[in-house]
């Protein structure tokens, strides 16, 4: 009890002694880990480069301006590819991720013991591996190009769509499903009338949200050869063509901001 009665007066502290000690221990361990990590990193850092950083940054900046606007002509096509990678990748992920969500949700899976763990494993694997790593893998398998990018984005997004969808499915109101069941509907009809209407807003929200993220992701899959504007970025950086890099950055910025605006509007319209 935080309230103790000592020499006739009640004293109050937020935590009792054990809580206090526990809290301090937590802070101690946390700080120790952080300090150790900092030590580790600074041991691997060449500090001369770091002290040089402001100069490097200033140097970079002077080389990046003025942007070479004429380069814009050359990035329309990769920009189009970038948007396609994001959009087609998202569509593919929705097509594959939706059944996965239903298989993983406790209340719709055909088998809790067998199918559900498998679906969850696929979801976790897909989510743990960044789209850039998927791209790396797919470029090695399919060869460089937009196709690898689309599949990389799709493979990463399947887990995302599947996870958020199965969480939404598990949170639905069961009495509505029961009511549809009670009318004598078949399982498929129960799905269509009892479950789908309940998760539709979440589903649409998830899809648009993931598309928005994928626009951002698809700007970099080109760095490893999977198509889109990242290819141009890679070649401009490796040839030290900094004024072009500026143009690419601006193009990315505008695209991402526009996609964010669009997805916010669509989500608003749906909800």
């Amino acid at each position: 009890m935080p309230v103790t009665i000592g020499d006739g007066r009640r004293e109050w502290q937020l935590r009792d002694r054990r809580g206090q000690i526990g809290l301090w221990l937590m802070w101690l361990v946390g700080t120790a880990i952080t300090v150790a990590a900092i030590e580790q990193i600074s041991g691997e850092t060449i500090w001369a480069f770091v002290w040089d950083a402001p100069e490097q940054a200033a140097d970079l900046l002077t080389r990046m301006v003025p942007p070479r606007w004429s380069y814009l002509d050359k990035i329309w096509s990769p920009l189009w590819d970038t948007i396609n990678i994001a959009t087609l990748g998202t569509l593919l992920a929705i097509v594959l991720g939706t059944p996965l969500g239903f298989l993983a949700a406790r209340n719709t899976t055909p088998s809790v013991a067998l199918v559900r763990p498998l679906a969850l494993l696929i979801i976790v694997s897909s989510r743990s591996i960044n789209s850039l790593i998927w791209a790396l893998l797919l470029v090695a398998i399919l060869g460089p190009g937009v196709l690898a990018g689309i599949f990389a984005i799709a493979l990463r997004s399947i887990g995302f769509v599947g996870k958020l969808l199965y969480e939404a499915i598990e949170e639905i109101d069961l009495s509505q499903v029961e009511a549809i069941d009670a009318t004598g509907a078949s399982p498929a009809q129960t799905l269509a009338y009892g479950i789908v209407p309940q998760i539709m807003p979440a589903f649409a929200g998830i899809s648009v949200y993931r598309w928005d993220i994928n626009i951002r992701e698809s700007t970099v899959v080109g760095l490893v050869g999977a198509g889109g504007i990242g290819l141009q970025l890679q070649s401009s950086i490796s040839t030290l063509a900094w004024p072009q890099v500026t143009v690419i950055f601006i193009a990315i910025f505008v695209t991402v901001v526009a996609s964010e605006w669009l997805s916010a509007r669509i989500r608003h319209a749906i909800i």
């Binding site: 850092t45 970079l60 950055f249």
Partner: peptide
């Protein structure tokens, strides 16, 4: 706005290769 990898490219240019 910028994907981590793009930011990383810039910071690598500034701080050199490595975990920093």
């Amino acid at each position: 706005t910028f994907q981590e990898v793009i930011v990383a490219i810039l910071f690598v240019k500034m701080f050199g290769f490595g975990p920093l």
